[in-house]
Measured scan of single mutants.
Amino acid sequence: QAPETKIVDKSRVACDGGEGALGHPRVWLQIPEDTGWVECPYCDCKYVLKGSKADAL
């Protein structure tokens, strides 16, 4: 199944896999201003900063 994409309001987000005990260790991710998105290294969930150029795609 394809990784999930989430639109977020802040450039710093936490990801834990979203499945409680079945998820992964919580990691904090920083969305770079130049790209407007970041992917979780564990679950490949893509976080897109709302209003960024990546959000316009």
Rank of each mutant, 00 (worst) to 15 (best):
K50D: 13
G36I: 03
D55I: 00
Y47C: 14
Y47A: 08
I31F: 02
Q30Y: 12
R12I: 14
A56M: 12
W37C: 01
W28I: 10
L29G: 02
K50L: 07
Y47H: 12
S52P: 01
P25N: 08
G36E: 04
L49T: 14
G20V: 05
C15Y: 00
G36C: 01
C45W: 15
V38W: 02
V8Y: 01
P41F: 07
V27N: 04
K53A: 12
L57E: 12
K53L: 12
R26D: 07
P41L: 03
C15V: 00
Y42A: 09
A2P: 13
Q30P: 05
A56I: 13
E4I: 15
A14F: 13
D44T: 14
L22N: 09
D55M: 00
A2G: 12
I31K: 01
P41S: 04
G36R: 01
P3G: 11
W37M: 07
G17R: 01
D9E: 12
G20Y: 01
S52A: 05
K46N: 09
G23S: 14
I31Y: 03
P25L: 08
H24Y: 05
S11D: 07
A54R: 00
P32E: 07
E39W: 13
T5K: 07
L29Q: 02
C15D: 00
S52Q: 02
I31P: 04
E19H: 04
A14V: 07
E4K: 15
V48K: 01
W37I: 07
V48D: 07
V38D: 01
P32V: 04
E39D: 09
V27D: 06
A21Y: 09
R26N: 06
C15Q: 00
W37F: 13
E39S: 11
T5F: 15
D44C: 14
S52C: 14
Q30N: 10
D9R: 07
D34W: 07
L57S: 14
G20A: 06
D16S: 10
D44W: 14
E19P: 14
G36D: 04
G36P: 02
W28P: 08
E19G: 15
A21Q: 10
V38N: 03
C43P: 00
P3C: 15
S52V: 08
W37L: 03
L22G: 09
G18D: 04
L22C: 01
A14D: 04
I7P: 03
T35R: 07
D55F: 00
D16I: 10
Y42W: 09
C45N: 15
K6C: 07
T35M: 08
Q1S: 12
E39I: 14
A56S: 10
G36F: 04
D55Y: 00
L29V: 01
G20W: 03
D55S: 00
V27S: 02
C45V: 15
V13E: 02
I31S: 01
V13H: 01
A56N: 13
C40S: 10
T35F: 05
K46Q: 03
T35Y: 06
R26C: 10
R12A: 08
D44K: 15
D44Y: 15
G17F: 04
C40A: 09
V8K: 03
K53F: 09
R12G: 04
S52L: 01
V8G: 01
A56G: 09
G36V: 04
D34T: 07
L22Y: 10
K46Y: 05
G17W: 04
G23L: 08
G17K: 02
Y47E: 14
E19Q: 09
S52N: 03
K50Y: 01
S52F: 01
D34L: 09
P3E: 08
A2V: 10
G17E: 03
E39A: 13
A56H: 13
E19N: 10
D55C: 08
V27W: 05
E19A: 13
S11H: 07
V38G: 01
L29P: 06
S52W: 00
D55H: 00
K46H: 07
D44E: 11
P3L: 10
V48T: 00
G17A: 05
L49D: 15
A54N: 05
P32R: 03
P25A: 10
I31L: 03
L49Q: 13
L49G: 14
Y42H: 05
P3Y: 11
E39M: 14
L29F: 02
I7H: 06
S52I: 04
V13K: 03
Y42C: 13
L57A: 13
Y47G: 14
K53Y: 09
L49A: 12
K10R: 10
A54S: 06
G51F: 00
D16R: 06
A14L: 09
V13W: 05
C40K: 09
R26H: 06
P3F: 12
D34E: 11
C45H: 15
L49E: 15
D44P: 11
L29N: 01
A2Q: 13
Q30H: 10
H24K: 02
V48P: 14
H24F: 05
P3N: 10
D55V: 00
G23H: 08
C15P: 00
P32T: 05
V8R: 03
C40L: 10
G17N: 03
C43E: 00
K6E: 04
K53R: 07
E19V: 09
Y47W: 07
I7F: 08
G23D: 02
L49I: 11
H24A: 05
A56C: 14
P3Q: 13
C15F: 00
E4R: 15
I31R: 02
L57I: 12
G18L: 07
A54Q: 06
K46W: 04
A21N: 10
A54Y: 00
V8W: 00
D44N: 15
A56R: 12
G51I: 01
Y42F: 11
K46I: 14
G36S: 04
C15W: 00
L57V: 12
H24D: 05
T5W: 15
V8C: 05
A21L: 09
G18Y: 07
C40E: 08
L29A: 01
T5R: 07
V13D: 01
G23W: 13
Y42E: 10
P32W: 05
V13Y: 01
V48N: 01
A2L: 14
V27Y: 06
W37A: 04
W28A: 06
A54M: 03
A14K: 08
